[in-house]
């Protein structure tokens, strides 16, 4: 390790993504941003603010209200050598574009015998907590994880958001990049310039010895707070932020469980078919002998995300739920 210090700048998660986009757009003329309202309006949730001024309308492309075309044209443009970064505002709209994403982008390389590469990024906001009701609040990373050929990324901090969007753009595969709405305004120190967080590498957010909390996206700060609550009760929790869902950093999970012997998986997505089940199966399969207690999941219930603030607050897993689940194991 050298002694050089990386200069950082305080910015929001949304600004960090935008900074990452700008860094790549300056470096590579083939990178462009495209979607509904990404230009003049600055993105459905304000992430692309300022890009139009710097890069102009040919590289910050406002489109018709046409999600299938946003993703479908990106498949063609990527096949022709461009690196589109497409936005569809909400991951709830994955249902509209799933053919182009799951059947076309994800399978083109495979079905074309490796000849075609589809280096595209699909950005979408995800998650609940802003009173946006059932059709604009879901966490659908498991949908994407279930399709071979797609990579899925869900950062939890501004620095990771920047480092991962750059890695996603440089990746030669289609990458789904999920930006949690509740995190967009969260600030943090972000390295300036070309800062890359490799896909497929989890982050250990807090070291601990008694239990492993595996989580991602907006549940990371909840797990960190739960770890603090647990520390007050003499329980030492290790918090792992997956950052990338696919490819999964299973070594990080298994190494941690080898140390703590307990596993609690936390995600905002609904329980049944959630990616937590996959992690539980992985540890049951390859780390069964490491465990001193059953594996627990803390998730949203199997219901649509409620519109009512009272219901939505009750619906979302929080630090207290996580701490309580851990204490059941101790």
């Amino acid at each position: 390790m050298g002694t050089e210090t990386v200069s950082t700048k305080t910015m929001t998660y949304a600004q960090a993504i935008c900074d990452g986009l700008a860094v790549e757009m300056r470096r590579d003329p083939d990178v462009y941003v495209v979607g509904e309202d990404v230009g003049m309006f600055g993105g459905g949730l304000g992430v692309t603010l300022g890009l139009l001024e710097e890069f102009g309308p040919r590289r910050v492309r406002d489109t018709p209200l046409s999600e299938t075309a946003i993703v479908g044209h990106a498949v063609g443009a990527a096949a022709a050598g461009l690196r589109p970064v497409a936005e569809i505002m909400f991951d709830d709209f994955l249902g509209i574009v799933m053919d182009e994403l799951g059947n076309q982008a994800a399978k083109a390389r495979y079905m074309f015998g490796g000849k075609v590469k589809i280096p595209m990024v699909l950005r979408a906001s995800c998650g609940a907590g802003i009173r946006a009701a059932a059709q604009h609040s879901q966490s659908l990373e498991a949908w994407c994880a279930h399709v071979p050929g797609l990579k899925t990324v869900a950062p939890s901090t501004p620095a990771d958001a920047k480092g991962l969007i750059i890695a996603a753009i440089r990746d030669n595969n289609p990458v789904v990049f999920l930006e949690h709405k509740i995190l967009l305004g969260v600030t943090g120190d972000v390295p300036e310039g070309e800062y890359i967080v490799p896909l497929g590498k989890a982050a250990i957010k807090r070291k601990g010895d008694d239990v492993t909390l595996v989580t991602w996206s907006a549940m990371v700060p909840q797990a960190e707070r739960a770890a603090e609550l647990l520390a007050e009760q003499g329980v030492s929790a290790e918090v792992i932020d997956l950052r990338t869902i696919v490819p999964l950093d299973k070594e990080a999970i298994l190494e941690s469980v080898a140390k703590t012997h307990r596993l609690v998986i936390v995600h905002e997505a609904v329980r049944t078919g959630g990616f937590g089940g996959e992690i539980a199966a992985l540890v049951a399969d390859e780390g069964f002998d490491l465990l001193d207690s059953p594996i627990k999941r803390v998730t949203a219930p199997d219901t649509p995300v409620p519109f009512s603030p009272v219901l939505e607050d009750a619906y979302l897993p929080g630090a207290e739920n996580i701490a309580a689940a851990v204490l059941e194991l101790m």
Binding site: V75, G76, A77, L82
Partner: peptide, 12 residues
């Protein structure tokens, strides 16, 4: 599905 790819290739 491929007509969309054609639009994207044209755009490229």
């Amino acid at each position: 599905t491929h007509m969309l790819h054609a639009a994207g290739l044209g755009w490229a």
